[in-house]
């Protein structure tokens, strides 16, 4: 028996909106510690890891570990039927081939339940070691989204370079080139507008903008995004999900042929 009640149901709507274009089908893993997901995109270039800790739910019952295979597009369709301020409850029986999403309005005058068929999904679970990064950039998520969107009108790839001067996003295309430099800005009065760069050593990596733009679908979840870079690792683009967890996108770089 699984029963997860999330007062901030809007968070789950935003999580699904940020996942559904990258991954079609995925297993949600439910355990005593939380509700999580790890899935690769179909080309095995990008990976998303989601964690919503059990403490973040108003009520969290998970009698035994369960893996719920879901089509994320269909799940997103159902969650779109919830209002942003609805309380969302996810329910599933151990042997069931379906999951129920229950939506309650804040004043309890409307209650809806949507049942969705589950799928059997052969998922490939990757071991992701804890890593030390050469550079970690924290910046406003909306700014990062804007940069990725702007650069993708000019080129297909972005070079992200971190030096002690700041973080530089560069692209090149048929019509020309573009460089955007963001300098460190602690913004003590408005921490959500800060750009903080922690650099062990300079690093420069190239990534496909198509994936970066897909990751920025998570922008409504968090004011800040963290971009962790190392020369010998995929980049990690992380958005915090309120106080309860995170959504992390991993993207393998491109190299000169």
């Amino acid at each position: 028996m699984l029963e997860l009640r999330l007062v901030q149901g809007g968070l789950l709507k935003k999580v699904l909106e940020s996942l559904k274009d990258l991954v079609n089908d995925a297993n949600f893993d439910c355990s005593a510690s939380g509700f999580s997901l790890q899935a690769m995109d179909s080309s095995h270039v990008a990976l998303v890891a989601l964690l919503l800790r059990s403490e973040g739910f108003e009520h969290y019952r998970c009698d035994r570990n369960l893996s719920l295979g879901m089509n994320l597009n269909n799940m997103a369709k159902m969650l779109k039927c919830a209002a942003n301020d609805d309380i969302v409850t996810i329910k599933a029986d151990d042997a069931s081939d379906s999951v129920t999403f229950m939506f309650e309005s804040p004043n309890q005058d409307k209650i809806a339940d949507f049942e969705m068929k589950l799928m059997d999904i052969d998922s490939e679970h990757l071991g992701i070691p804890e890593a030390e990064f050469q550079a970690i950039v924290r910046m406003p998520s909306a700014e990062f989204a804007r940069i990725c969107k702007d650069l993708s009108t000019i080129g297909d790839t972005v070079v992200i370079s971190v030096t002690k001067e700041g973080v530089k996003f560069s692209t090149r295309g048929d019509i020309g080139t573009a460089n955007i430099v963001c300098r460190q800005n602690p913004s003590i009065d408005k921490p959500e507008e800060a750009t903080i760069i922690e650099m062990e050593e300079p690093v420069s990596l190239t990534f496909a903008l198509r994936y970066m733009n897909s990751f920025t679908k998570a922008t409504p979840l968090a004011n800040q995004v963290t971009i962790s870079l190392s020369a010998d690792l995929p980049v990690v683009v992380e958005y915090r999900v309120a106080e309860m967890g995170y959504i992390r996108f991993y993207l393998a770089p491109k190299i000169e042929e």
Partner: peptide
């Protein structure tokens, strides 16, 4: 522009 690396280059399948 350039070759796209795969995640399997970095992460092992569990």
């Amino acid at each position: 522009a350039g070759a796209q690396l795969l995640l399997s280059r970095y992460f092992q399948l569990n």
